[in-house]
């Protein structure tokens, strides 16, 4: 299936770009890759960039919420940017909007993190 996780380190922030379709099947890949990067250390925060995420269901919400909690437990933050209207609707429905900061672009997300960290 067409899904890809792209990771880019920028100082203590890990930019995570999700591309393709995120469901129960592909959520496992996100969990494994992000947990490995977070456990390896040197990362305080994650910017989840969703510009090229073409599909997401509640399994995506689950894996995002799980990584958010993991980072929070380590004193870090996870922010989200560039979501399409369908993904935005799921964030609204589930209440994730209330706990996670959402930005228009990677640039504003990174700027936002520097202000809060």
């Amino acid at each position: 299936m067409n899904f890809h996780v792209e990771l880019e380190h920028q100082r203590n922030v890990l930019i995570t770009r999700l591309k393709g379709e995120l469901d129960h099947h592909t959520a496992e890949l996100v969990r494994v890759q992000l947990d490995e990067a977070i456990q390896r250390g040197q990362i305080n925060h994650v910017v989840l960039s969703l510009k090229e995420l073409s599909f997401m269901d509640s399994s995506g919400l689950g894996v995002i919420l799980g990584r958010y909690k993991l980072l929070k437990g380590k004193g870090g933050k996870m922010v989200v940017c560039d979501m399409n209207p369908a993904v935005r609707r799921l964030f609204e429905l589930s209440g994730l909007f209330k706990i996670m900061n959402v930005y228009d672009s990677e640039h504003t997300a990174l700027t936002g993190l520097e202000v809060v960290s």
């Binding site: 509640s58 799921l90 589930s94």
Partner: peptide, 17 residues
């Protein structure tokens, strides 16, 4: 938000969606 499998990081949003 109810899930019978919280250990599997299910969001509990399936029926609501």
């Amino acid at each position: 938000l109810y899930t019978s499998k919280p250990d599997m990081e299910r969001s509990g949003m399936g029926f609501t969606i």
